[in-house]
Amino acid sequence: MSGQLLLIDALNLIRRIYAVDSNQNKGSDEQMIITCCARVAHACEKLIKITQASHAIAVFDGDKSWRYHYYQHYKSSRAPMPATLQNALDKFKHAIEQTGMVVFTPLNDEADDIIATLAHKMADNQLCSTIVSTDKGFLPSLNNYINVYDYFKKEYLDHAAIEKRFGVQQSRLIDFWAMAGDKTNDIPGVKGIGSKTAIEIISKHADITQATEDETLSPAVRKKLAAGMTDYITSKHLVALRTDINLGFSLKQLRLN
């Protein structure tokens, strides 16, 4: 295989477009879904052109992934998908397939892990891919072969933008989220450690476990770290995307029709 692989986080794209269309909807739900499907398909066609992709796939989430079994509170406070959207997912999948793009829904895995696996397989073979998503979880994967593109801001993410947004280097994002937590996904982090303290600790330590012995940190912070190390390890597993999912298909099968 040669060329550029386009990897679309399908529900991320659909839900963002649906949110705008549903707020502006003045007709029936059926007509709104038709319009929304057309907008999603148009977005996919634009993304193929923008990335000059030779291969492409739109990935949906499977049922409860390993994270739900590993940590019972994972995404527990997240609002369910609107019924109108849930019932129309097959229509969205068909609309995307009409662009010539492969649509894939795993049995149990999350789209993020599937996309990360594909992107890293490409990178291992010195081939380029572009991930299209506003999900920050993809940012640790950014490298010379893996790009991340925000369709709604019309921009590629880079290391400077990441450091400006989070206050840490891209290579330390997983440590940062594991320590400070991630409320959007109900990932606990270390209790009592916020973003500011997490940034301070990360700037001083490549190995977070060493921070519990750092006397330049306040006794209160060291105590919180020692007490929260189990949650830190749990959180680190949750925020890190897997890159070893057994896909069941080859990259060659993703060539655009």
Rank of each mutant, 00 (worst) to 15 (best):
Q72K: 11
N25L: 13
I208R: 10
K93D: 03
A58S: 15
A116T: 01
L118N: 14
H205N: 09
I115Q: 04
T230P: 00
G62K: 11
I187T: 01
F104T: 01
C44W: 02
V102E: 07
D113Q: 10
A53I: 03
T243G: 04
A83D: 12
H205R: 12
T243I: 13
K204R: 15
A38Q: 12
R16I: 04
F249C: 03
Q253W: 03
K154C: 09
D207I: 14
I245N: 10
T234K: 14
M101T: 00
G228H: 03
C36A: 12
G194D: 05
L247M: 02
D124K: 12
E215F: 07
R172S: 14
I199R: 12
L7T: 01
Q210R: 09
L47S: 06
L256T: 02
H237V: 09
P219M: 04
Q24K: 13
A227H: 05
P106G: 13
I14F: 05
L238H: 12
S141T: 02
E213K: 15
V239N: 08
L6P: 11
I33F: 06
E200Y: 03
A226H: 13
S129K: 06
I208W: 13
D186W: 06
H205S: 12
T99F: 06
E45I: 06
K46C: 07
R15E: 14
K136T: 05
N147D: 09
A220L: 14
T51I: 01
G194A: 01
Q170N: 11
I201C: 08
S77A: 14
K121N: 14
T84R: 06
R242S: 10
M32T: 01
S65P: 00
R16E: 04
Q24C: 08
T234A: 08
T130A: 02
M81L: 11
A19V: 01
I193G: 14
K191D: 14
S22F: 05
G137I: 00
A160E: 13
L254S: 08
Q4L: 06
N143P: 11
V59K: 11
A178W: 12
L157K: 13
T105F: 02
P80G: 06
S22D: 02
N246A: 15
A220H: 10
A95I: 05
A83N: 05
V40I: 13
A53N: 10
A240G: 12
A83S: 10
E45P: 00
A111Q: 13
R242T: 00
L142W: 10
E213F: 14
M32F: 09
K64V: 01
I115S: 12
N12H: 11
L254E: 04
D158S: 07
Q86N: 11
L13Q: 02
I199H: 01
L142G: 01
S65G: 02
G62F: 12
M101P: 07
S2D: 11
R172Y: 10
I174P: 02
R16P: 00
E110R: 13
S195K: 15
M101S: 00
I33E: 07
R39M: 11
L225H: 08
W177E: 06
M32N: 06
T230K: 14
D63M: 11
I17A: 01
